[in-house]
């Protein structure tokens, strides 16, 4: 009986696409988020006039509710009333408004962009905290030894950030993997399951398909999946390794 529910989930023709989506979603959002955040953190670590204001501004996407932020993006890109869509037409980037959120591939890309947008603040602040722990003496010593800026970043700063980055990546993986609201709002009304991850598919199974048994089976699998993803990440990068 129980295994039958799992079998019904895995026999679905659409599932491979959903698994690929999940991988793209997690890897893409987390990678772009971390790269952007590393750059931003480096910038915010410098002393410059108005730094406090900029630091606060970067907090806003984090402080605002994800549902609200996503809804704003969704309506900005809406083909009939969206201002961003209208703007793109006015500056002649588009001939007519485009249904960014109405087609699986573009909607999924929009969702990933929003995912990055809401994940960057937390990640930036985590890395910023990490940068704060690097003793100035080490950096000064490096300068004295005559390393250039790039070497200073890759050889000295990055190794010191290893633990911080590990935490940021793992928390982001879990957050992004389990994130429902963004996909629910942006791709939730799309027909079919072409733009779903395993998490948003679980929700669809429960609500739209009215198949709580299948949703449960998939969510058990989902939990296992996130453990596996983290295990792979730990095995590949070994972020906690002490050199």
């Amino acid at each position: 009986m129980g295994l039958a529910n799992y079998r019904r989930v895995f026999e679905n023709d659409g599932l491979p696409q959903v698994l690929i989506n999940t991988a793209v979603w997690v890897a893409g959002v987390v990678f772009v988020t971390v790269v952007l955040s590393m750059a931003l953190a480096q910038f915010l670590n410098k002393d410059f006039p108005g730094r406090r204001a900029i630091r606060l501004a970067i907090l806003i996407p984090w402080a605002a509710s994800v549902v609200m932020t996503t809804t704003v993006f969704y309506y900005m890109l809406e083909p009939n009333v969206g201002i961003l869509n209208k703007f793109l037409v006015q500056i002649n980037v588009l001939d007519e408004t485009f249904g960014f959120t109405k087609r699986p591939v573009s909607a999924f890309a929009v969702a990933m962009a929003v995912g990055v947008f809401v994940s960057v603040p937390f990640t930036t602040y985590t890395i910023l905290a990490g940068l704060g722990t690097i003793p100035d003496e080490i950096l000064e010593a490096a300068d004295v030894d005559g390393v250039n800026r790039w070497q200073r970043y890759t050889r000295i700063v990055l190794p010191q950030l290893r633990g911080t980055l590990a935490v940021a990546v793992i928390i982001n993986i879990i957050n992004v993997f389990n994130s429902l609201p963004i996909l629910r709002i942006i791709t939730g009304d799309l027909p079919g399951i072409k733009a779903d991850t395993t998490t948003s598919l679980t929700f669809k199974l429960l609500t739209l398909y009215r198949e709580p048994a299948l949703a449960q089976a998939l969510s058990v699998f989902n939990f296992g999946l996130v453990l596996v993803i983290i295990a792979i990440y730990m095995a590949v990068t070994r972020p906690m390794r002490e050199d």
Binding site: R103, L190, G192, L208
Partner: peptide, 19 residues
């Protein structure tokens, strides 16, 4: 019927994507 209705809500729109 509830399952059928859910499937219609979810699947029928794919005809606009060439299904």
């Amino acid at each position: 019927w509830p399952n059928t209705q859910g499937a219609i809500q979810q699947q029928i729109g794919t005809i606009a994507q060439g299904a």
